[in-house]
Design a protein around this nucleic acid. Structure first.
Lengths: 231, 231
DNA sequence: CTTTTTGCACTGACCAGTCAGTTCAAAAGA
DNA sequence: TCTTTTGAACTGACTGGTCAGTGCAAAAAG
């Protein structure tokens, strides 16, 4: 059998772990060419809402292209595959989130606040982020605990990035004497993430009219154990 | 074109009464025939793990059937569609969870415990449930905040069921004087759910060797504001 | 007790449709 | 000129759902 001249559909070896294509869009180390970057941004935005609504598998590349207002070919010109687009989107979004969290903690630090204050500020920052990018948050939560997926590793890295930002403050607080040395840093961080995530999603989904301050104070009360009693 | 594939037979003619198939699977009001129920159970179990791992859309009916050890047609004999199978699975699982939560609260009640104790018992019950059905929990979290989906309404009902169990205790505690009247019951309940959900998922995914007691005490500490200080 | 009938539960090949990914010539920037 | 985008055509694989047909245990008939 000889290769039919027109098409060259993947030779024999199927086991190829890596896509053979010449492309390699994912580079763009810095600078980012002007036009290209704008297109990618549009694709991110289109993809994030669609995937948040329907999930990754249920979202088609055609839909993403249409929503972004570009041709399907453009998607593949800018990203090696649907999965790669998704992975880069994840990294992009979580980068923004962690930056925001760390910034909040550092700001508190600079103002001479305590570690609880830092945690509180991070909760607020988290809520702010979720309010600004609700779709991204949905998508993050929805994909976070899936296993057996192509982007497993990306997800792990990204999750760790977020949790670490909180764990750092917790650790500092323990070293500080401000927090009990008996707290379980890892679990407490996870619990705090969950608290903010689910409460914020509830807020956005079912009571979007409420203010950030309002929601923040409810969580703040929980964080500081001001639920029982009323000191 | 007739040409029956491999099998022969059964002469044509079937002028008999046009029984269009007995269909009507989803009923089974009570008793339910033994065999049928066993098959449905196997399908639930197969579907829950697969969907937890891959998500609803990425999971095929063929996979579910194969994992359950039945033919594809059997899936459709027992459930009207893939979505219906999923919806019934959701209702089934959440039914178990809420029963467990309410039972825990009532037990505390009977023992003359406080409302914080009830909340604490519910956290423990929640953790226990998640430890027993981690896949179901993954699936629940992953699909909970999706919009534009066929089973939207089922999800809402089911979510409300869980949250209400917690809100009830919170309300009772406020009426009781045990909780500050300023707490936001709705948001606090959501936050507690998130706290348990994410912490437990973290536990199951990354530190499965730890004991329930261990995890419970970490969350308990957070609930009771015993994080800062060490009273 | 033996034979026949009934109908539920299950089967799996099949179909019509869908999707990710590819290709490319031509147009549009810059 | 060089880069980026377009848009439509195509493919190969896969998917949800269907349906004619099978197996079997219990009821009915003899």
């Amino acid at each position: 059998m000889t290769a039919p001249r027109t098409r060259a559909p993947v030779p024999a070896t199927e086991a190829g772990p890596v896509t053979i294509r010449p492309m390699e869009s994912s580079s763009t180390p810095s600078g980012g060419s002007t036009r290209r970057e704008a297109t990618r941004q549009k694709l991110y935005e289109a993809a994030v809402t669609l995937i948040a609504e329907q999930g990754f598998s249920a979202t088609t590349v055609d839909e993403i292209a249409e929503r972004a207002g570009v041709a399907k070919g453009t998607v593949y010109y800018n990203f090696a595959s649907k999965s790669v687009l998704f992975e880069e989107l994840l990294r992009h979004g979580v980068g923004l989130l962690t930056a925001s969290l760390r910034e909040a903690a550092e700001q508190t630090e600079r103002d001479g606040g305590s570690k609880v204050d830092a945690l509180d500020a991070m909760i607020r920052a988290g809520l702010g982020f979720i309010a600004r990018y609700p779709s991204f948050t949905q998508l993050y939560v929805a994909e976070l605990y899936r296993t057996n997926r192509a982007w497993q590793s990306t997800l792990m890295v990204v999750r760790q990035q977020v949790n670490a930002a909180i764990e750092d403050v917790l650790h500092a607080g323990v070293a500080n004497g401000e927090f009990s040395p008996e707290i379980d840093v890892r679990l407490t961080a996870a619990a705090l993430v969950g608290m903010v995530l689910v409460a914020a999603l509830d807020w956005q989904s079912f009571q979007p009219e409420r203010s950030l301050d309002d929601v923040h104070s409810a969580l703040s009360r929980l964080l500081q154990g001001r639920v029982s009693g009323d000191r």
